[in-house]
C-alpha cells in the first residue's frame, strides 16, 4: 500500500530514468552486447558482482601475495630493491632464490621482539582503558531518553569525522611542558615544575584511548540498546540488587559487543604509527613505527615486508574473534 502513497514522487523519478533506459534499449550495441553476454552465461548479477570483486582481488588480495613474495627475497641495490625469487636460465631452467634471512633476522635482532611485545602491551592496555571509559558511556547513552539518544550518539561520532591527525596534534598542545595541563597545574600552585608528559609512554596511551574511544562505544551501544529490558525488570522483581543484575544479566549479554569493540580498538592500535611518532618518546618501540622506519629510512623492502607479514600473523586471532562477535551480534538482531 505504501507504493500508492509514494506514487506521485516515484512517477517523477521514473519518467527520467525510463527515458534513459529506453534510449539505451534502442541502441543496437546494447542489444547486441546483452544477447552476446547472455549467451556466454554472463548475467547482470555476475557483472554486478564481478566489478567490485575484481577490484578487491587486484588491489587488496594480490598486494598481500606480492608482499609475501618480497619477504622471502633478498635485498639488493637498484629498482626494485629486491632480487627476483625465480630467475630463468636459458629460458628453461628456473633458479629459485628463496631467502629466510629476513625472518631469521627478526628473531636474532632483539629490537623486533621488543617492538612486538611492546605493541601488544600498549594495544592491550589501551583497549582496557577504552573499555573502562567506553562501557559506562555506551550504557548511559543506551539508557538515556530516546530524544537525547540520537544527539548523544552524534556527539560520539562527530570527533571521528574531524581529522584524526589534527586530534592527535591537539594533545601535543595539552601535554607539553608549557601546555594546557602544566600551565593549569602551575597556575593553581599544585606543582612548581612542569610534569613531563609529552614524549612518554603515558602520552601514547592517552592518544590511543582518545582516538579509538568511538570504536569502542558504538558497537557497545548498539548491543546495549537492543537488550531486552524485561529481563532486568524480572531480576529486580525477584529481588536482585542492581549490581547483581548487572553482573549476571547485562554484562554476559553484552559480551559480543565487548569483544567487537575491543577488537576494533586492539587491531588498529597494534599497528599504530602516527600516535607513537607524534606523542611518544623518539625511541618508542611500536611495530608500526619499526615497519615505517625500515621502509622509509633503511629502504630495506624485503625486511619491511617480513615485518608486515609478522604483524599480519599476530592479527589473525583478533580478526577471527571480531568476525565471530559480529556474527553473534547479527544473529541476535534477527532473533
Amino acid at each position: 500500500m505504501s507504493a500508492r502513497a509514494e506514487a506521485p514522487r516515484r512517477h517523477r523519478h521514473s519518467a527520467g530514468v525510463q527515458l534513459i533506459l529506453d534510449f539505451l534499449n534502442r541502441l543496437p550495441p546494447y542489444r547486441w552486447t546483452q544477447s552476446r553476454l547472455v549467451r556466454w552465461g554472463i548475467t547482470g548479477r555476475t557483472a554486478v558482482t564481478a566489478v567490485p570483486y575484481l577490484w578487491l582481488l587486484l588491489f587488496f588480495l594480490v598486494p598481500f601475495i606480492i608482499v609475501l613474495k618480497i619477504a622471502f627475497s633478498e635485498a639488493r641495490i637498484g629498482m626494485p630493491p629486491y632480487a627476483p625469487l625465480l630467475t630463468w636460465i636459458d629460458g628453461s631452467v628456473a633458479q629459485v632464490n628463496l631467502q629466510l634471512k629476513n625472518f631469521a633476522n627478526m628473531f636474532q635482532d632483539s629490537l623486533y621482539a621488543k617492538a612486538y611485545l611492546n605493541s601488544i602491551k600498549v594495544a592491550a592496555v589501551s583497549t582496557l582503558f577504552c573499555l573502562l571509559i567506553g562501557y559506562p558511556m555506551a550504557y548511559a547513552i543506551a539508557r538515556a531518553e530516546s530524544k537525547w539518544r540520537h544527539i548523544l550518539l552524534m556527539l560520539v561520532i562527530l570527533p571521528f569525522w574531524t581529522s584524526f591527525l589534527l586530534r592527535v596534534y591537539a594533545w601535543i598542545g595539552i601535554l607539553k611542558n608549557n601546555g594546557l595541563i602544566n600551565n593549569f597545574l602551575m597556575w593553581t600552585g599544585l606543582i612548581d615544575e612542569p610534569i613531563v608528559m609529552l614524549q612518554t609512554d603515558f602520552a601514547i596511551y592517552v592518544g590511543i584511548v582518545y582516538s579509538y574511544l568511538p570504536f569502542m562505544i558504538l558497537p557497545l551501544y548498539s548491543n546495549l540498546e537492543k537488550m531486552d529490558l524485561t529481563l532486568l525488570e524480572a531480576a529486580a522483581d525477584l529481588g536482585a540488587r542492581p549490581f547483581k543484575t548487572f553482573m549476571t544479566i547485562t554484562l554476559p549479554l553484552s559480551l559480543p559487543g565487548i569483544v567487537a569493540g575491543s577488537m576494533l580498538v586492539f587491531i588498529p592500535a597494534v599497528g599504530e604509527f602516527v600516535i607513537p611518532e607524534l606523542l611518544g618518546p623518539s625511541d618508542s618501540l611500536m611495530i608500526g613505527k619499526v615497519l615505517w622506519q625500515v621502509f622509509f629510512t633503511k629502504r630495506d623492502w624485503p625486511a619491511a615486508s617480513a615485518v608486515a607479514i609478522a604483524l599480519l600473523l599476530l592479527l589473525v586471532i583478533p580478526i577471527v574473534l571480531l568476525q565471530r562477535a559480529q556474527a553473534a551480534e547479527a544473529r541476535g538482531a534477527h532473533r
Binding site: 587488496f60 588480495l61 587491531i267 619491511a304 592479527l315
Partner: peptide
C-alpha cells in the same frame, strides 16, 4: 571471500595496506 575482502580493510593496520599497495 567477497565479504571478507570488504570488511578486512576496515581493521587492517594502515602500514600493512600502504606497504602492500605500493609493492603492487
Amino acid at each position: 571471500l567477497l565479504s571478507g575482502m570488504t570488511t578486512a580493510p576496515l581493521v587492517m593496520p594502515e602500514v600493512i595496506t600502504g606497504l602492500s599497495l605500493l609493492m603492487l
